[in-house]
Amino acid sequence: MKKEEFIKTLKELMDTDEELTLNTELKEILEWDSVSMVAFFSFCGQRLEESELLMQKIENAATVGDLYNIIGAE
């Protein structure tokens, strides 16, 4: 998934108006909460074969870039 497409999708999932870059810290985004985590988990779960540690990776993510790496940067 291309970076621009990922950021657009993430903004939709979180329903946020914030400007996001790969360096944006998740703790700075008001809408990054358990609801967004579940939304992102579902988004990843439908695309990734292996989800063994997926939730852990999402919970440990610190930046938008960390989330991008989970889904697989191109």
Binding site: S34, M37, V38, F41, S42, G45, S51, E52, L54, M55, E59
Partner: peptide, 11 residues
Amino acid sequence: NGLEVVNFSSK
């Protein structure tokens, strides 16, 4: 623990 429930259901 909602996140764990989601994780369990998917796993």
